[in-house]
Simulated assay, not measured.
Amino acid sequence: MSNQAAFNTLIMRETDNGIHIRLNRPEVRNAIDSEMAEELHRVCVLLESDPRVLTIAGSAGIFAAGADIGQLRERRRADALRGINARLFVRIQQLPMPTIAVIDGHALGGGAELAYACDFRIGSPRTRIGNPETGLGIIAGAGASWRLAELIGEPKAKEILLAGRVLNAEESFELHLLNELVPSDELDAAAESLCEKISRQAPLAVQLTKRALHAPRDAHPLIDEISQAVLFETEEKERRMTAFLNRKKDLR
């Protein structure tokens, strides 16, 4: 799976801190077609069996200009009901470890919805985020209709989804749609720094916290109690707390 020859639309790099994916269809502004969706599913298979942080970036100065319009124009009712991108983005959102969208340039349509499905978003001054689907006679049907309101509130989400507003980088950061805003040439370093911070945490604690964050409101406090019960029995908790107490003792 780590062999790059396995991918036609993605570039994959593995480090100690995670897996780093670059969307690689610059000739069509990294539009997400069925082949790219299938290859992203294969990345998910890897991360579901071997949980690590995932970063997703674009290439050639653009994150992703949406789904492939040529393919979308030919799709019909049965294709919509298959939820090709919607099911993929749910799977990405549900990956065990956190995911980071690294956004340089435009993230539009399906590209924006891919970014919304990630746990973190880091952008540059060139970042532009929007959903132009209604202008094409369709809806943003891969998660924007519910994720975006959760992320930035209903009034702003309506401006984007109903009136075609495209957010610039500063607006995205002010609305907390972007966690960080850095120069384009610092994006990779910022993503790597965040990967390192996450990787310093206890992996199972991170995974269970992510599940608790995404759980429905009525699943609490049960999911918190069960997660804590599991973690209380781990050697990792014992080791980390012992190290903390020893450091505190040394400071006296």
Rank of each mutant, 00 (worst) to 15 (best):
Ala219Pro: 00
Leu177Gly: 04
Ala215Cys: 03
Arg200Asn: 13
Ser184Gly: 14
Thr209Tyr: 05
Pro221Ile: 00
Ala189Ile: 15
Arg200Ile: 05
Asp185Ser: 04
Ser193Leu: 09
Gln201Asp: 09
Ala212Trp: 05
Asn179Ala: 10
Ser199Val: 00
Ser184Met: 04
Ser184Arg: 03
Ser193Cys: 07
Ile198Thr: 09
Ala212Leu: 08
Ala202Asn: 15
Lys197Phe: 01
Leu187Arg: 07
Leu177Phe: 13
Asp218Ala: 06
Gln207Pro: 03
Ala202Met: 13
Leu177Met: 09
Lys197Ile: 10
Cys195Glu: 15
Ala191Asp: 10
Pro221Trp: 02
Leu194Thr: 10
Ile198Gly: 06
Leu204Val: 00
Lys197Met: 10
Asn179Gly: 10
Leu222Pro: 00
Ala212Met: 12
Pro203Phe: 01
Asp185Val: 08
Ala189Asn: 15
Lys210His: 03
Arg200Val: 01
Leu181Asn: 06
Ile198Cys: 04
Glu174Tyr: 06
Gln207Lys: 06
Leu181Pro: 13
Leu213Lys: 11
Ala215Phe: 01
Pro216Gly: 06
His176Gln: 12
Leu213Tyr: 02
Pro203Tyr: 00
Ala190Val: 03
Gln201Thr: 03
Leu175Val: 03
His214Asn: 11
Pro221Tyr: 00
Lys197Ala: 11
Arg200Lys: 15
Thr209Leu: 10
Ala191Tyr: 12
Ala191Phe: 04
Ser199Glu: 06
Leu208Gln: 13
Arg217Asn: 08
Leu187Asn: 07
Pro183Met: 02
Ala191Leu: 09
Asp188Tyr: 00
Leu187Thr: 02
His176Met: 05
